[in-house]
Design a binder for these strands. Structure first.
Lengths: 125, 125
DNA sequence: CTTACATATAAATATTATTTTATATTAAAC
DNA sequence: GTTTAATATAAAATAATATTTATATGTAAG
């Protein structure tokens, strides 16, 4: 029962749903999410670890950066995530995505390597 | 976003999952649930109201009694409930169902009106 | 109309989760 | 190797939830 409880607990907090919604379009590193949510970094790290613990996201380490993305592990989680993300309209996180866009654009100018998805590559190589 | 949060919050607590699992086989009145969970009545009422608030269960008043049952309102909730209940094995709530069985049997002897589902009718009419 | 029963609600308390602040870790840049 | 940047973790403060205890409400029975 603990496993399913962890999944629902992870999904029962607004910040975490906003993070998931942001990750819908691809992976982001912690600093991207911090910028998008306009909040402080330890808070984001806390929620990311909750989501990861529940098996909803995964991380990929690359140098100093840690990139998080949706982890479509088993069918149940995949289905849950799909239906959840579908039920959160883009307008709900409009401010988040605006801030993210601005942040990524700036990053892009400093290190103009563009990846798929019109997203900047997080970290210069 | 608040609606979906309420649904997940409702599903992120063990007592409430146990109640939902008990309701899987049909409606129960509050005192049945109290007996099954071997706990106190205000606690059960509290959790029932949370579940009802989230639209996961509904109530039916009959005299002094209030019967609760799963509310398969919209597709999302229905699907959620289905997959949740499926993922909670009967063994998980074995003690609960044992206590429920004993309690219903006793009730049955006092007022031997048997309803569908081999469950006693909660209250004499 | 008084009593007893089923449930709900309120208030007080306890528990758990989140947020903040401060600090540690790790890796790249200098 | 020292500094800087990105992230994580620990400790403390705060906020949110759940539990308990006490009481209220409504309904049927006597």
């Amino acid at each position: 029962m603990q496993e399913i409880l962890n999944i629902f607990k992870a999904l029962s907090e607004e910040t975490r749903l906003r993070i998931l919604k942001l990750l819908e379009n691809g992976e982001l590193c912690v600093c991207d999410i911090v910028a998008a949510l306009d909040t402080i970094q330890p808070k984001v790290s806390f929620h990311l670890s909750t989501l990861k613990e529940a098996g909803l996201i995964k991380d990929r380490k690359q140098g100093k950066w840690v990139h998080y993305s949706i982890h479509d592990s088993d069918i149940f989680r995949r289905f849950l995530l799909l239906s959840v993300l579908e039920r959160i309209s883009p307008e709900t996180i409009l401010e988040d995505s605006n801030r993210l866009r601005v942040f990524l654009k700036e990053k892009n100018q400093k290190s103009p390597i563009v990846a798929i998805d019109n997203r900047a590559v997080c970290c210069p190589r």
